[in-house]
């Protein structure tokens, strides 16, 4: 593993570069195909409304995949991630237009652990609402 960030160069509170990830209907269709999760709540508005959702929602795993990019773009080596977990607290509602919506992700070093490991806490929001809870990654730095 070859993270480009050194353990000695970070401290608790160090912020990772924040990013905004667009989420469109087309992206969800593509993710459904790539992941094999064809639940119609992620592409069929009629079905989503029938089960009580306001509209089509993003796959939680899509949002989880986007959020960790803040960490992997920071370390350079995605293999530096030794643990990653989230709670799906609010759905990301994706309207049927070309703009879709966006998930904003910020992150900071929350703890320095042993063996070059740090814990990074992530904050993912959509329209000002938190969409992932307890979103944490443990990362091995250089």
């Amino acid at each position: 593993m070859a993270a480009r960030i050194a353990f000695d160069d970070v401290e608790v509170g160090t912020e990772l570069p924040a990013q905004t990830f667009p989420v469109t209907r087309a992206a969800l269709v593509r993710y459904a195909g790539a992941s094999g999760d064809f639940n119609p709540i992620h592409w069929n508005e009629r079905f989503a409304r029938q089960v009580g959702l306001p509209d089509v929602i993003a796959h939680g795993m899509f949002t989880m995949a986007e959020a960790v990019r803040v960490v992997t773009d920071w370390t350079g080596d995605p293999g530096a991630v030794v643990e990653y977990g989230v709670r799906f607290t609010k759905p990301v509602v994706v309207p049927d237009d070309d703009a879709g919506t966006a998930v904003e992700v910020s992150a900071k070093v929350a703890a320095k652990l042993e063996d070059g490991l740090v814990r990074v806490d992530l904050l993912a929001t959509c329209g000002g609402q938190k969409v992932l809870g307890m979103s944490r990654a443990v990362v091995r730095l250089a």
Binding site: G60, P78, Y84, G85, V86, R87, F88
Partner: peptide, 15 residues
């Protein structure tokens, strides 16, 4: 039909 994904975590030995 009533199941939703509550949380998800991965613990990696390697990628």
């Amino acid at each position: 039909s009533r199941v939703v994904h509550g949380d998800q975590r991965f613990a990696y030995t390697r990628p």
